[in-house]
């Protein structure tokens, strides 16, 4: 099996974010790391290729900072990595991301499965995942909590998906695009050898000419980032003689707020 995993670099989840004068988001001294959701996708790809044989290729769309995520995937055990970027793509929207990602998968030629993490933690969206599947014309199975059966020879996959009302078992033919949830596995820590390999890795960049894919004009654009409104007021610490009395006062306050 050839499994492709889509990933990107995002600020560490513990980072305090700010907005620079030029409008870009900054994260101080915090490192860029692999989008936390994607570790599950990489792990799942490694598990499945170990089980069925095959190879894992990781792909990121974006400028050089996204090498960080690709190198982490190599350190975890992915065989190869490709970064897709061309300065002409600056400002492209999800339709553009889907177009270049799908073109890269098609160029690889022998891919059976494309895995993504649940969503991109920075832009907080999964739309490009679904649009990549559609662009490829492949089976799409979203929000996968576990792969129940995988038959590369028969060309089928059966998964459990977590939807709002519960757990759905669905099946479809390969090739498939899926986004996987936290809890599908326990992502491994990179090994010492893996880290050494990642440090030395030269990551090829495929640009517009290499892909031969026209990027559609963006239909949406970012205007600005802003901070969340500050929560006003101090916390009222409820003190009383007994815990029952504390409970009584709190319930009174909450009834007065009309939130119960």
């Amino acid at each position: 099996m050839h499994i492709v995993v889509g990933t990107r670099s995002t600020p560490d989840t513990a980072a305090k974010l700010d907005i620079a004068a030029d409008g870009r988001v900054t994260w101080g001294d915090s490192p860029l790391v692999m989008n936390p959701w994607d570790e599950y996708a990489v792990e799942e790809a490694l598990i499945r290729t170990k089980e069925h044989g095959g190879t894992v290729t990781v792909i990121a769309v974006g400028p050089e900072e996204h090498d960080e995520a690709l190198k982490h995937a190599i350190a975890m055990g992915a065989k190869s990595a490709i970064r897709l970027w061309d300065d002409a793509w600056e400002g492209m929207d999800s339709l553009g991301y889907a177009a270049v990602f799908a073109a890269a998968v098609q160029k690889l030629g022998d891919v059976d499965m494309v895995l993504f993490g649940k969503e991109a933690a920075d832009e907080a969206t999964d739309q490009f995942i679904f649009q990549t599947a559609r662009k490829l014309g492949w089976t799409l199975l979203g929000y996968v909590a576990s792969i129940e059966e995988l038959d590369p020879d028969g060309g089928t996959v059966k998964v459990a998906q977590m939807l709002e009302e519960g757990r759905q078992i669905a099946s479809g033919p390969l090739p498939v695009v899926m986004n996987v949830l936290k809890g599908i596995n326990e992502p491994r820590y990179p090994s010492f050898m893996g880290i050494r390999k990642a440090t030395k890795a030269q990551i090829p960049v495929w640009d517009a000419a290499e892909l031969g894919e026209d990027v559609p004009a963006p239909k949406t654009r970012l205007i600005a980032y802003r901070h969340l409104p500050v929560r006003e007021g101090e916390c009222e610490i409820i003190e009383a003689e007994s815990v029952e009395e504390q409970a009584r006062i709190l319930v009174e306050r909450l009834m007065a707020e009309k939130v119960v």
Partner: peptide, 21 residues
């Protein structure tokens, strides 16, 4: 929702439209 995000993303690609998710 899981379904709504998926459906509108796919249809937006089909029709070459912008999607605010």
């Amino acid at each position: 929702t899981s379904r709504g995000k998926e459906l509108l993303a796919v249809s937006a690609l089909d029709t070459g439209s912008g999607l605010l998710a």
